[in-house]
Amino acid sequence: MPRTQASLRAYVVQRLLLTGPMVLILLTLVFYFLRAAPGDPVGAILGEHSGPLADSIRRQLGLYDPLYVQYVDYLRRIFTGDMGNSIITQHSVAADIAQRLPATIELTVASMFVAVLAGMLLGVVSATRRDRPADVISRLVAAVLYNTPIFWFGIIMQLVFAVQFRWFDSGGRLSAQFAIPPRVTGLYTIDSLVAGHFRTFIDAVAHLILPALTLGLVLAGFFARLVRANMLQSLQADYVEAARARGIRPLDVFYRHALKNAMVPVSTAMGLTFAILMSGAILTESVFSWEGIGRYIFTAISNRDYPALQGAVVYYALIMVFLSVLIDIFNAWIDPRIRY
């Protein structure tokens, strides 16, 4: 249908146009807080030291320039991908982040998988057995999961499954005896398969399981509530009753009509889900020594590595915006009504 495709294209363009101001607002906020806020960020970060080191850092960061010069310079650097050098590692922040991004992607994708699976299960059980014991239990489980501090949950998972049962290692992405597979995607699970190192693959998966469960199950609590609320509405929808009246089998009515329609608002809320996921990833990576961007942020905080923190935050923000645009476009593709 050319008409449908054209409307989808128009929607994508419109959505991208809206993204511009949003990115600018976020970048301005980060700039404001990390550079222009009253007080002296370098002093705050280096503590009481204000000797030649602080002075040279200020000069290196251009903090003696007028604010608008700093702002324009800041934006220019972001769009050319230059985020300065980490004070601690002296590497380019952009390179540091590029190196760590695949780890974060691997973790978040795996967690999302866990979250969708467990969340849908809980939510569907709840909605189809409304107000019965199964519903009450599922809702309770979902509420507790979503309200569990991720870092605590991760530590307890380590205690139970790594320390007590010794099923998994308690941190890192790969055991020391395995060589890191040649980089193709940077995702160890995929790279090891590409390289044909099957035992490395098993080891990478084993390392991924605990952090992905930690982050995924917490997010599943959020998902479950969303799925339940929307299922309750779609199960009562007129088209569901109409489908029943046409003799469609209950399972087909459930999956093809009720569940599918309930997924529309759920996937619309994906942007919010990703925000929670990205917040959780910072804590999960910190607990499991998972060398991704979240752990990079954690290390930057502990080391008071200011350019690294700023760079990581900016990249994180850009990834978020990029994902939310992708999600919206995906939704427009699923739900024909959005495009109009």
Binding site: D238, Y239, R244, A245, R246, V264
Partner: peptide
């Protein structure tokens, strides 16, 4: 189920919401 939609059909008051929007 064999009867519904085959031997006997039902049409409703509010056609706007009776077809699956997706």
């Amino acid at each position: 189920r064999k009867i519904r939609g085959r031997n006997a059909s039902l049409i409703f008051q509010d056609p706007m919401t009776r077809l699956d929007p997706l």
